[in-house]
């Protein structure tokens, strides 16, 4: 039991929250970066290797395209269906291999990215499918290569839904990052468990809830603003943007 009237309680609380927030932002930030770097191409390939897609016949082989599509579908479905808590534990050997340990914020990035990548890839798939096939055709008629079509048509034209999808993904990464705290992954989740739960400090618990709420609200506000800015329904400012970066 922690005594809020004890000297040094408030500076201590502040210190713990500061470190926790830093750790949370660190693991979420890096996980988001990895998620975008892997999930975006994955989502594009998921659509592209479908029948009639841009990459339906990689290296001129339709059977290869079909196999790639099946494998990606399977991986994404698997990643999406395994509960996070199980995934996290199952990934421990892999995490140890990549990071060297399975404890701490850096190690937590691995399960967070692994759970978020298939989730985001689906979002990318949905967003890219919304792009009018006439635009792809127009680019083809101008002699575009497949990569030019991806970079100049598919991604820029689906920027708004991509940003909103990313925002949803980041929110769930924050959610999962708190769960990681229960197995010594650090961050605000661990603060809530160590102080709020194990030492009955309601003040810690409430502070963590408020902080996470503020982070999520700011994130969603930013995403909505960016998405509107890129949708070009109303009067916007700039246009060119290749790949959305992490928020």
């Amino acid at each position: 039991m922690i005594d809020p009237t004890a000297p040094g309680f408030w500076p201590g609380l502040f210190q713990v929250l500061l470190v926790g927030t830093g750790e949370t932002l660190y693991m979420v930030g890096v996980a988001v970066l990895v998620t975008v770097l892997v999930g975006l191409p994955l989502g594009i390939l998921l659509v592209g290797t479908e029948r009639g897609g841009l990459f339906e016949a990689p290296f001129g082989s339709r059977p290869l395209g079909r196999v790639v599509n099946r494998v990606l579908e399977f991986v994404v479905n698997l990643g999406r269906s395994v509960p996070f808590i199980i995934l996290m534990v199952a990934l421990i050997p892999f995490t140890r291999l990549v990071i060297g340990t399975f404890i701490g914020s850096t190690a937590a990035i691995v399960p967070l990215a692994v759970v978020a990548i298939p989730f985001f890839a689906r979002m990318v798939e949905i967003a890219i499918k919304e792009v009018d096939s006439g635009l792809v055709e127009a680019a083809e008629s101008l002699g575009a290569t497949r990569w030019q079509i991806v970079a100049k048509v598919l991604v820029p034209e689906s920027l708004s839904p991509l940003i909103l999808g990313l925002s949803t993904t980041v929110t769930s990464i924050i959610n999962f990052s708190a769960m990681v705290g229960t197995v010594a992954g650090g961050g605000l989740g661990q603060v809530a468990i160590q102080y709020g739960y194990q030492r009955y400090s309601t003040i810690h618990m409430v502070a963590v809830i408020i902080l996470i709420f503020i982070i999520v609200m700011m994130l969603q506000g930013l995403a909505t603003w960016l998405a509107r800015r890129f949708s070009h329904r109303a009067r916007p400012a700039r246009s060119r943007a290749a790949v959305p970066t992490a928020i």
Partner: peptide, 26 residues
């Protein structure tokens, strides 16, 4: 050059940006 019934312009680019598309590709 090809012109389409439903224009097929990129919504995220200005008129000039759309015209530049083919030049960028080239």
């Amino acid at each position: 050059g090809m012109v389409f019934q439903h224009f097929n312009l990129l919504a995220g680019r200005t008129a000039q940006g759309n015209v530049e598309l083919g030049l960028e590709i080239a």
